[in-house]
Design a protein around this nucleic acid. Sequence first.
DNA 1: AAGCGAACCTGGCTGC
DNA 2: TGCAGCCAGGTTCGCT
Length: 293
Amino acid sequence: MPELPEVETVRRGLEPVMTGQRLVRVEQNRPDLRFPFPPRFRERLEGQSVLSLGRRAKYLLVDLSSGEVLIMHLGMSGRFTIIDPTQKQSPGAFHHDTGGTALHDHVVFHLESGAHIIYNDPRRFGFMDLQPRHSIETSRHFKSMGLEPLGNELNGDRIRTLFEGKKAPLKAALLDQSLIAGLGNIYVCEALYRAGLSPKRRAGTLSSPRGVMKEKADELAKIIRDVLNEAVEAGGSSLRDFAQTDGSLGYFQHRFRVYDREGKNCLTKSCGGVIKRLVQSGRSTFYCPKWQK
DNA sequence: AAGCGAACCTGGCTGC
DNA sequence: TGCAGCCAGGTTCGCT
């Protein structure tokens, strides 16, 4: 379930296992995922040490001793599984215990510690790339990327500026990675619900300098940060299981207030509305028509 | 030029 | 039980 909080959870799970480790061997089981792997992918990784693990929006960034950065995106179905023989494993927890290669295991990183990390991605919407560290900001994945929602940059003023004059629905504007980078379908629905804003409203209406909308952009900015931070913390609480599970359990899903709740009652106190589903730019939007205006 | 729908893939679930 | 149809966390491309 890789939106920003899930990617951050993955980063935190991989960090203690990979940091300072040399990549002794890399298996690459097919020529491409969403895009072809970069030329000499394995050769450029093998023998390098991992200096640190970072994240930008939904991208994982592995800083290597070669001066290159391994850029990884999980797409819709990408998952990492850590196999660490020095750690005890819960019995029968995982098919990888056999040491065999499971279907859709596309890349395996072998570390000098003896641990290895498997990248599995049935739909192959994920991808991996290598770019020099000094030019990462101008590389094709990042050059037109919007601001980081969990940094200090996101506030009401930035939202007002970014959305000024926009006729696109608010839902679409929040999903636009060139404006704010990292929000996905679930957390946009959740944030709009908490803010009481209709996903169908024109994004530009948040830029109004006066009237009832004056403070709404400030409120939305805070809510976006809150929703993401809560989800990161919920993911963090599941990190204990990171190495042994297949990651299919949603960390945060039992906390959804609106996502995937079509036909259920609106949880806003005394609202009495019913959650509706509609399709915007090809994706499901869940919202309460009575409460979100 | 912004804004929208389709495309890229596989797998899981629902309903006939 | 089998099979068709629909749906899914994201991004990119191409058409208005």
